[in-house]
């Protein structure tokens, strides 16, 4: 009984701490996205005139994330019935936005005007092991070509 009680307290604590971290992260993402609105990152590559380009170079941003213990349990439960696993959706969404922001920040620090041909990549680094209660890790990678235009 004591064991079960401890487990419930533990999972509840993890849930609230995880939720708090997520809320803080979303707030910071929104602020940084606003600050970098002047620097468009686009998937296309014919958005500039070749003659106007001063410099082009590769930039990338990467982030490694894992889901929390509560979310993993929830996901395990949902997987039984099928359907959307919103716990993971929000995690992947915010980590991809973080990777995109890091790429933009790297481009902005060298004076880029835009990032073209942006590619996203998601890969599993560690599968996670339910028997050892690990959740698995993902890497979000974003890369593209930063373009600096000549002064007109």
């Amino acid at each position: 009984m004591a064991d079960f009680l401890f487990f419930v307290v533990f999972v509840t604590a993890v849930f609230f701490i995880g939720q708090h971290i997520q809320k803080k992260h979303f707030a910071s993402l929104e602020a940084r996205e606003q600050a970098l609105l002047y620097l468009p990152a686009v998937v296309g590559r014919k958005v500039f005139n070749d003659d106007d380009v001063e410099r082009a170079w590769l930039v990338h941003g990467t982030v490694v994330v894992s889901g929390d213990y509560f979310k993993m349990m929830l996901a395990g439960l949902i997987k039984f019935f099928g359907g959307r696993i919103s716990a993971y959706e929000s995690l992947l969404d915010r980590s991809r936005r973080e990777a995109l922001l890091r790429m933009k920040e790297a481009a902005a620090s060298e004076g880029a005007h835009m990032v073209v041909n942006v590619r996203f990549e998601t890969s599993k680094i560690d599968g996670g092991n339910p028997s050892q209660q690990t959740t698995g890790m993902f890497e979000m990678l974003t890369y593209g070509t930063a373009i600096r235009l000549k002064a007109q």
């Binding site: 490694v64 894992s66 980590s95």
Partner: peptide, 8 residues
């Protein structure tokens, strides 16, 4: 960190 989730 794995327990709470987020970036590693």
């Amino acid at each position: 960190q794995n327990t709470f989730g987020g970036e590693l």
